[in-house]
């Protein structure tokens, strides 16, 4: 009983800290940094990352490892509200979205293109089986779960997937803010195409990319958010099967070719140096 009480009080501390961080982040508000021909938007939720690091064991020491373990599952619970709100963005615009359903489905397949870029780079950096785990992940729990199921969490592939998940959590929001900024300012892609692409990652990555994008197209704000949410929902519903039946077999086939190629190169280099 006393242990139960301790557990609850531990959560209260984390909630209070989150409360303080959220209120301060919203008080600071968005930063818009003019950069030559474009503007970089830093939305309030990005302030939470540096404030989180500030209260962490490296600096202010307000939270320890136990607290951090407790904070992780709360990320998922707080996403529930966000997903409900996103559903309410899709509902009123569903007719428009269904009219573009072909494009929505096609861009899901387009996402497979990532493997052709990321796998060779990962392997040239010296990664081997880990590369299969980390190039098959967009920072969603389902990616992690599937790799764990197929290869085991302790395998090199599992290590790659965990690394990718962590990378997605830490850098994904920042990266997708940058993508929303760069593509919104410097490219001629249609905002709806960019909105669909914003839905490819996790819920917070989608929010980062789509809300940054909508600051550049205030007139299209509701469409941008609705298309991002619809694309995210579609990835959530089909992503597991797409990854399992298409992406992983594709990655494995490419891996075999690349390993032969790279090893032959290494051998000829060794022969030359001898």
């Amino acid at each position: 009983m006393s242990q139960h009480k301790e557990e609850t009080s531990g959560f209260v501390k984390i909630h209070l800290l989150a409360l303080a961080i959220v209120v301060i982040a919203e008080f600071i508000g968005p930063w818009s940094i003019p950069m030559g021909i474009g503007t970089i938007m830093i939305l309030p939720f990005l302030h939470c990352l540096w404030m989180g690091y500030l209260v962490g064991p490296k600096i202010l020491k307000l939270v320890d490892n136990v607290d951090m373990e407790k904070a992780s599952p709360l990320i998922i619970v707080s996403v529930w509200f966000l997903m409900a709100r996103y559903g309410t963005l899709i509902g009123p615009t569903l007719a428009t979205i269904l009219g573009s359903s072909l494009a929505l489905i096609a861009q899901e397949i387009g996402q497979l293109g990532a493997v052709f870029i990321a796998l060779p780079v990962a392997m040239m950096l010296g990664l081997r089986r880990e590369a299969i785990g980390c190039t098959n992940s967009v920072g969603r729990e389902t990616n992690l779960g599937l790799i764990g199921d197929l290869y085991g969490m302790d395998s090199p592939e599992g290590l790659g997937a965990i690394g990718a998940y962590v990378t997605g959590t830490v850098f994904g929001t920042i990266l997708f803010s940058i993508l929303g900024n760069v593509f919104g300012t410097f490219t001629n892609f249609h905002p709806i195409s960019l909105a669909m692409a914003a839905g490819t990652g996790s819920a917070s990555m989608m929010t980062a990319a789509s809300s940054t994008l909508s600051t550049f197209y205030p007139d299209l704000k509701s469409e941008i958010l609705a298309f991002a949410a619809a694309s995210n929902l579609l990835t959530g519903a089909t992503g597991l099967y797409k990854q399992w039946l298409l992406q992983i077999p594709m990655t494995e086939a490419m891996y075999k070719k690349l390993v032969l190629l790279l090893d032959r190169n290494n051998k000829s280099q060794e022969a030359r140096s001898e």
């Binding site: 990532a114 990664l127 997605g168």
Partner: peptide
């Protein structure tokens, strides 16, 4: 190496989606 590879995979996913979309 995992961080760099993952970031490239994320950008690639985004790019693949934008172009095909």
């Amino acid at each position: 190496k995992i961080v760099v590879s993952t970031l490239i995979a994320l950008v690639g996913t985004y790019l693949g989606s934008v172009i095909v979309g």
